[in-house]
Amino acid sequence: MLSAPYITLPTVIAGAAVIFLFALALYPSSLLQWFKRKRYQYEVTFSLYMLSPTEKFIFNSILFLFLSMVSIAVALYLPRHVKIIAHRAYYYVSGDLLKNGTTSGVLDTTGAGFLTPTAVAEVAGSA
Rank of each mutant, 00 (worst) to 15 (best):
L107K: 11
T103L: 04
S126K: 05
E55Q: 05
T116P: 01
A124Q: 05
I7V: 11
L24P: 07
I19Y: 04
E43F: 08
L63E: 14
A25Q: 01
T45M: 14
R80V: 15
L31R: 11
S61M: 10
L9G: 09
A75R: 10
W34L: 15
R37T: 13
I72E: 02
V123Y: 00
T54Q: 09
L21C: 04
I72R: 01
T116C: 02
V12S: 07
V106Q: 12
A112H: 10
T109I: 01
L98S: 15
Y49G: 10
V82P: 05
M69S: 12
Y40E: 15
E122S: 02
W34H: 11
R88H: 12
A124K: 05
P10Y: 00
Y49S: 15
S3P: 04
H81A: 15
A25D: 08
R39F: 05
D96H: 14
T116F: 01
L9V: 11
A4F: 14
I7H: 13
A73E: 07
D108T: 00
L24R: 02
P28R: 00
P5F: 02
A14V: 12
V93C: 13
S126W: 04
Y42M: 05
L107C: 09
A16S: 04
A124M: 06
T45P: 12
P117M: 01
Y92H: 15
Y27W: 08
D96M: 14
R39E: 05
E55R: 06
W34I: 12
I7S: 07
G95C: 07
L65D: 05
A17W: 11
S52D: 08
F20N: 09
L97H: 10
F114G: 01
Y42W: 10
M69K: 13
K83F: 14
D108M: 00
S68M: 03
G113Q: 00
M50I: 15
L51H: 08
F46H: 11
S30F: 06
R37P: 10
V70M: 02
S104G: 10
L51D: 03
I85V: 06
L31G: 09
S61V: 12
V93E: 15
E43M: 09
I72N: 00
L98W: 10
D108Q: 00
V44C: 14
F20R: 08
D96V: 14
S104P: 12
Q33N: 13
L67P: 04
F46I: 06
T54Y: 10
S71N: 07
A86F: 13
A86L: 13
H87I: 06
S61N: 11
L32C: 08
V74P: 04
A124W: 03
F66V: 02
L107M: 03
F114W: 09
A75C: 08
Y27C: 05
S104W: 11
I13E: 09
Y40G: 12
H81E: 15
D96S: 12
L97R: 05
R37A: 15
L24H: 04
Q41R: 11
P5I: 03
A119I: 04
V74M: 03
L97I: 04
R39P: 02
R88N: 11
E122F: 02
L97F: 08
